[in-house]
């Protein structure tokens, strides 16, 4: 019987099942790491950073949302969003378990409009975190507060960016990746790690006159686009996708700014 199975080339399949039965392969762990950079250096809260042209910036608050999507043949999704806080390093590292068949991950800058309309949420989306405009439905997608300094003096910067209705819909960004599907050689099912760098250079060097944006607006929309331009994937993608050719994989591996498709 065993010889028959091995003869069918199922040796790896059988050992894979045994390996999985130990509990180590019930799911695949996906690690997402985010860090923030300015002028080529890590951004540290409450420290001045000098940019080209003599501009300096000191961040006091930086918090923002990312919505992860996981999909495969069943087009599943999590229905959650992550609140990232530069003051809370743990929030910048997220680990999730993907399940069999879920081999595409997409991250969205901000809270997607379905969640925005979904009623009151708990966890990272609890309005008590101060990332919700109480006077209208809508999460603040990105909050940056700090000081700007140049030859003209010191100015306060307060950006609360968001909005998902009408003209005030904020520009967002998708970052798509293929993950290794849960079949094949079990020994290759290692954890996957994804790193992102959020560079603020483009935003801070292209600020207009509006340094205090506290509600959905055209300035907020523009600033969100500038932030999206500054997102880069830090680490090489290490998985492979059954349904994706190498060309497709390279395409997906890029961070691609585009407007929210909803």
């Amino acid at each position: 019987m065993m010889d028959f199975l091995l003869g069918l080339g199922l040796r790896r399949w059988v050992f894979g099942l045994l390996f999985a039965a130990t509990g180590q392969l019930q799911s695949q762990s996906l690690d997402f790491h985010h860090r923030v950079a300015l002028a080529g250096k890590p951004l540290v809260l409450n420290q001045w950073t000098e940019l080209p042209g003599g501009l300096e910036f000191k961040a006091e608050v930086m918090r923002w949302y990312v919505t992860p999507y996981f999909s495969g043949k069943q087009q599943d999704r999590t229905g959650e969003a992550w609140l990232l806080d530069l003051a809370d390093s743990a929030s910048l590292h997220r680990q999730v378990d993907a399940r069999k068949g879920d081999f595409i991950v997409q991250l969205l800058f901000g809270v997607d409009s379905l969640l925005q309309r979904g009623g009151v949420m708990d966890g990272d989306l609890d309005p008590v975190h101060g990332m919700y405009w109480t006077w209208q439905s809508g999460y603040i997608q990105f909050k940056l507060e700090g000081l700007l300094r140049d030859s003209a003096g010191e100015r306060k910067l307060e950006l609360h960016l968001g909005g998902f209705e009408g003209e005030n819909k904020t520009a967002m960004m998708w970052m798509g990746f293929f993950l290794e599907p849960f079949h094949g050689n079990a020994r290759r099912r290692s954890n996957r790690s994804f790193g992102f760098v959020w560079t603020l250079d483009s935003l801070l060097l292209n600020l207009g006159d509006e340094l205090r944006v506290m509600s959905p607006s055209s300035a907020g929309r523009r600033y969100c686009s500038l932030i999206a331009e500054g997102i880069h994937q830090e680490e090489e993608w290490v998985g492979y996708g059954k349904s994706g050719s190498p060309q497709n994989r390279r395409e997906l591996n890029r961070v691609r700014p585009r407007n929210h498709p909803e």
């Binding site: 059988v14 099942l17 045994l18 999985a20 039965a21 392969l25 019930q26 799911s27 992860p68 996981f70 599943d76 999590t78 229905g79 959650e80 969003a81 680990q95 999730v96 378990d97 993907a98 399940r99 069999k100 068949g101 879920d102 979904g118 009623g119 009151v120 949420m121 708990d122 966890g123 990272d124 989306l125 849960f182």
Partner: peptide, 25 residues
């Protein structure tokens, strides 16, 4: 082995993506 494979498949089917934060409606 076949029985174990069934357990594994059931385990996968029951799994999910971390903690879903959707408050059920």
């Amino acid at each position: 082995c076949v029985a174990l494979s069934g357990c594994v498949i059931l385990g996968y089917a029951g799994g999910g993506f971390g903690d879903a934060k959707f408050v059920a409606h």
